[in-house]
């Protein structure tokens, strides 16, 4: 149980109509319940970005390279829930993402 329990909003404080502000995932480490983790191999990756577009949680990190092109830069383990879609979608010939048991 988190210590925030006693900080929960009251009916008077809650926004009406069940509105939840957008972008609040940034406040939480939603990757904490992961049982498997994807491991990215920088040398194999060709930055086709299929994993990036497939990830339901936006956990594939990308950056601009010197040519101004987006390239994969790693995996955001704070958000990644270990669904494995990135590994599945990574082109077979490349196999730049492997799935491993979570080490905790």
């Amino acid at each position: 149980m988190r210590k925030e329990e006693n900080k929960k909003l009251t009916a008077a404080e809650l926004p009406v109509g069940g509105i939840v502000e957008a972008g609040t995932a940034i406040n939480f480490h939603t990757g904490s319940w992961r049982s498997q983790r994807p491991v990215w191999n920088k040398d194999k990756c060709i930055s086709c970005l299929i994993c990036w577009i497939s990830c339901p949680d936006g956990s594939i990190k990308i950056v601009l390279n010197e040519k101004g092109t987006s390239v994969v830069n790693g995996i955001d383990y704070d958000k990644c829930k270990g669904c494995g879609i990135c590994a599945k979608e990574c082109p077979t010939k490349i196999s730049a993402i492997a799935i491993e048991q979570e080490r905790k």
Binding site: L9, L14, E21, A22
Partner: peptide, 27 residues
């Protein structure tokens, strides 16, 4: 607040379990 207000986006109709549903229905 309204969903087409792109400057102030929000989530509507989210799950609301034991910890908050009661407060919303009380509201």
């Amino acid at each position: 607040r309204y969903l087409l207000d792109v400057k102030r986006p929000y989530t509507l109709g989210s799950i609301d379990l034991q910890d908050y549903y009661f407060e919303h229905r009380y509201q």
